Simulated assay, not measured.
Amino acid sequence: MSPDDDGYGNDSGRPNDGYSTLGGTRQTRTRLPDAQGGDGYGPRRPARGSRSLFTVLGVVVLLLAAIAFANMGGGDGDNGGDGARGSDAKKAGSAPTAATGTKPVTGKNGSIPSGYAHDEQGAQSAAANYSVALGSADMFDKGRRRAIATAVYAPAVASARQGDLDKVYSGEAFLANIGLSADGTAPAGQIFISRSNPVGTKVEKFNGDTATVSVWYSALFGLAGEGSKNPVSESWFTNTFDLTWINGDWKVTDFTQKDGPAPVGRDQAASPAGEMADAVEQFGGFTYAR
C-alpha cells in the first residue's frame, strides 16, 4: 500500500525539512570570517552538522537494534507472517502459515481433497477445504451436492444433512431470489459464481479424535454477465466446524456460520461483468492446507 496520502509524510524516515540530504546529515550555510579576528559578522555560529549527525546515527542504531530484536527467535513460529506479533500471536492461538514439512493431503474423495493428517494441522486443512466445497456453486446441483455431503460429513449425519441441504438449495423462492432457475442453473448468457476463499484457520479445541476449527474466508457470490440483476459481490464469514476422526480421516459432524470479520473495502472500480465471468472460468481454485 502506498503511504502517499495517509498522513505520515514522506516514506524515507528522514526529517521533512529544507536541511535534509540524501546522506542523512543536516548542513547549514554558516558564513565564516576570513581571519581569526573577525570581520564584522559577529561571533561564529556553531555548526549544526555534528549535532544532527549524532542524532541521525542514534536513530539508525536504534532502528538496527529493533530489526535485530524482531528477527531473534524467528524459527519458533511465533511471528511467522500471519499478521500477529510477538505474544499477541500466542494469545490469539494463531499459527504460522509456513510449510511444516508434513504432507497435508494424500488423496481425493471425488473432487474434494481427503486423507488429512491425524493432528491439528490436518484438522485445519480439512476444515479449510470443506469450507470451499460447501460454499461452491456445485451445492446448487442436486447430484453434486449429495456427493459433497457424503464426502464432507460423518456417515452418522450425512443422510440427515443431505435432506436438510436439499430443502434449502431446492427451494424455488430461494433460487428465484438469487436469479437461478428451478433446477439451479443460471439464465442464458450469464455465469453463476459461488466461491469461498479461506484466508486463515484457527483451532478452537483439539482432543485427539475430535476438533473444533474456525475458518475465516471471503466469498464471491452472484451472476456474472450482461443484464445481471444480482452482480457478483464479496462477503466475509467465519465457519466453525466440529470434526471427528472417522475411518482414517476428518469428517464434519456440525458447523455454524457467522458474519465477518469484514475489512474496509478499498475504493476500487468494479470490473465489467464479462471480465468477472472470464476470471472465474480462467482462474482455478486451490487445495488449502496448513
Rank of each mutant, 00 (worst) to 15 (best):
W236N: 01
K229P: 09
G248E: 04
F241A: 02
T244D: 11
G260N: 04
V252P: 06
T240R: 03
D249C: 09
G225I: 06
W236F: 01
E226R: 15
N247V: 07
T244G: 09
G265P: 04
T240K: 02
A270W: 04
S235I: 01
N239A: 08
K258G: 02
A262W: 00
W245E: 05
A269W: 05
W250N: 09
T256M: 02
S233W: 06
R266S: 13
V252D: 10
V252N: 05
W250C: 05
S235N: 04
W250V: 02
S228Q: 08
G227D: 07
S271I: 11
T238E: 00
S233Q: 15
D254M: 11
E234W: 06
T244A: 14
G260K: 03
S271L: 15
A262D: 09
T238C: 00
P261Y: 04
R266P: 06
D254W: 14
L223A: 07
D242R: 12
A270G: 14
K251L: 08
T244M: 10
G265L: 13
L223F: 08
A224V: 09
F255D: 00
G248A: 03
P231M: 04
W236D: 02
P231K: 11
S228R: 12
R266E: 09
N239P: 01
D267M: 13
L243E: 05
N239W: 01
A269P: 14
D259Q: 06
F255V: 01
L243K: 08
A270V: 14
Q268K: 14
D254T: 07
G225C: 13
D267R: 12
D259N: 10
Q257W: 00
S228N: 10
D267Y: 06
N247E: 14
L243I: 10
I246R: 15
P231A: 04
G227T: 08
W245I: 11
S233M: 12
S228V: 05
G260A: 05
E226Q: 15
T253A: 07
E226V: 15
T238A: 01
A262K: 12
Q268S: 08
N247I: 07
S233T: 15
D259A: 08
A262N: 11
Q268H: 06
G248V: 07
S228F: 05
D249A: 11
L243Y: 09
V264D: 12
W245N: 10
K229M: 09
T240C: 01
S233K: 15
I246N: 14
V264K: 13
P261I: 02
I246Y: 15
G248C: 06
T256E: 04
E234Q: 06
S233C: 09
